[in-house]
Write a protein that binds this DNA or RNA. Structure first.
Lengths: 157, 157
DNA sequence: CCTTGACCTAAAGTTAGGTTTAGCAATTAC
DNA sequence: GTAATTGCTAAACCTAACTTTAGGTCAAGG
């Protein structure tokens, strides 16, 4: 097995991060890591890539897409091994985005109160009607329009 | 165009919710709504389905999968049009799940502090190392193992 | 009558984030 | 030196949540 001095093999990286070999190759294809190749054409990784992949895993847990993670990782220097300062600078950006995400959820949750069961669910003045701050969420998500006046069917049982 | 008295057509529902017709059919296939058919075989929806679809859209914004949403909607009565009480009961369950989600994110965020740049990122005692409470998150997500001692490359620049 | 527009079904395509498979090359272990 | 690992690529497959396409039907207007 390729030992550390000339870089880590993909198998070692896999064993030490818990990621599948196929996942690591997939991440390379998406430019999250940039291994070099040895004389035989096999991938060789820096020890710093362990940390990089750890970060990928954490950020995914937080619900970030690989695209966003790539953006964040782009904050790390390319030419040299990232220092502690490099990592904390990047983490600051990460935390900001994370806080923003949590804030959106909380704001929506607060708007939710009383809005589901009551008539306002359907009226233009319902606080859930026009959740501007979610518009930036990921994916081609739903368009979020509320309609239908409650009518008699929702009158007190 | 089919008017309200004998139910709403899929086109009307689409226009009033903002959902694509194809999406509504897709939701029917996944049992989120159960329209009946008119004599010509066309779908006809209850006015209450507008509310149902609104809920689907909201819950998706909160990051719930259609499967979870189906579960939640199952809390509404099948035989009759849901009353306000039915909706609020369901919303209570929804809020609980939502609060749980937010709590997980917050807990992780708090653990994150200081963990990215420092050496602890790699040590077994790092608080991010074993985030038990995220294990239940959706999908076959990452396995979340941290490795690599920082070593000299992370020493002060 | 005949055209137009809304609707129908079934199946294939799409994106994200991977995994699996097939067939072959490089390394490592004995 | 040879067998067993491990790695390589390319392409197919997988789930979620839809959209698109293809080919056909239904209902209303002129």
């Amino acid at each position: 097995m390729a030992k550390s001095k000339d870089g880590l093999s993909i198998g070692e990286l896999s064993a030490r991060t818990g990621l599948a070999v196929s996942a690591i190759r997939c991440y390379e294809a998406q430019n999250l890591i940039r291994p070099w190749r040895n004389s035989g054409g096999q991938r060789r990784f820096q020890r710093a890539d362990l940390r990089r992949l750890s970060f990928v895993m954490i950020a995914q847990k937080f619900g970030f897409s690989l695209g966003e993670i790539r953006e964040l990782l782009a904050g790390l220097p390319g030419g040299r091994t990232p220092t502690k300062a490099d990592w904390t600078a990047m983490a600051d950006e990460f935390r900001e985005r994370l806080d923003a995400r949590i804030a959106v959820l909380e704001r929506l949750r607060d708007r939710l109160d009383g809005c589901i069961g009551c008539g306002c669910l359907s009226l233009p003045n319902c606080k859930l009607y026009n959740p501007d701050d979610v518009a930036a969420e990921d994916g081609p998500g739903p368009r979020f329009v509320m309609e239908d006046r409650p009518g008699p069917e929702i009158a007190p049982a």
